[in-house]
Simulated assay, not measured.
Amino acid sequence: MASHEQASAWHRFWERGGWWRSLVAVAVYYALYQGLSIVVVSPVAASIGEDPAAAIWVDYALPIALGGVLLILFACSLGWLRGLFGPQPIRGPWWMWIGVAVPLLFALLHVASIDYARAGPGVVIAWLAAGLCIGFAEETLTRGVVVKLMRSAGYREISVAAVSSALFAALHAGNLLSGQDLLSTVIQLVYTFAFGICMYLTLRVTGNLIWPILLHASTDPSTSLMAAYPADNGLAGVAGLGNFVVIFVGLVLLIFIRGRVAEPRADGLTPDA
């Protein structure tokens, strides 16, 4: 009986949704992610030597993959897995495709601006795997769990987009702890907020979480590979403008987001229209 009541309380807490539960979910995830990085990843990292591909697997792919496993377990505990990865309850108008096209265009430019021979197949494969892990975990958390929590509380979609993107950006504030300077971190937070808006628009217009996951997964590895191994073909300069264009597009398109998903609440009440 106690176990059943405990499970019911767990479900009732999360099914009510809301912005502060979204904040709790992201904060707990981040704390667990950092803890796993210290306990599991650090001992492995100390034994890999100078192999750059191995460093990417251990420093990037492994910890974020463990974070993804935590999110799957969390979603399963609430019975949300099918809902998170199933068809979305609201779709978007044609203009939302701009939020898909812009990051996709610059991801393709990044891909075309990489010196693959210098990078080597091991590094490229490692970054592709890390990108998939990053895209899966970060999108499942922010465009999956956070969007679900915000919609469950009856928030308008502009608030859903803004809060999910703000929490996505906040995840990157921890880079200050790893030695990144303040100005670079502030710019990164603005970029990740705008990029998060584009990922939200991708979720809306495609109707399925898998597409922002894949679009996000194409962005991180292509950006990192281009920065480390730029090709001498003149495209890197154009591709490097991507951050500024994404910031502009994301912030402008946020203004036009409309709609609301009025899901039934766990207490049986329907959110106000």
Rank of each mutant, 00 (worst) to 15 (best):
E139H: 08
H172F: 04
V249I: 15
E263W: 04
A153D: 13
I158N: 14
I158P: 11
L141F: 07
A231H: 06
D59T: 15
S218N: 05
N175L: 04
H216G: 11
T219K: 08
A194L: 03
L73R: 00
E15V: 01
G144T: 11
Y200R: 00
E139L: 05
G17F: 02
C198W: 00
L201Q: 14
D272T: 15
V205W: 05
G196K: 12
D59S: 15
A227H: 13
V28P: 03
A107V: 10
A65Q: 10
V186P: 10
A173K: 00
D272G: 15
L62C: 10
D181N: 07
L171A: 02
V249R: 02
V100N: 11
D59P: 07
W127D: 01
G17I: 10
V58F: 00
G67D: 10
P230A: 01
L149D: 12
D272I: 12
I114F: 02
Y200W: 07
R265E: 00
W94Q: 08
D220M: 07
G242Q: 05
A153H: 06
S224M: 14
F85H: 07
A31Y: 05
A27N: 04
T206V: 09
A126E: 01
S8Q: 15
G17N: 02
E15S: 10
E50P: 13
A162F: 11
A227P: 05
L254E: 01
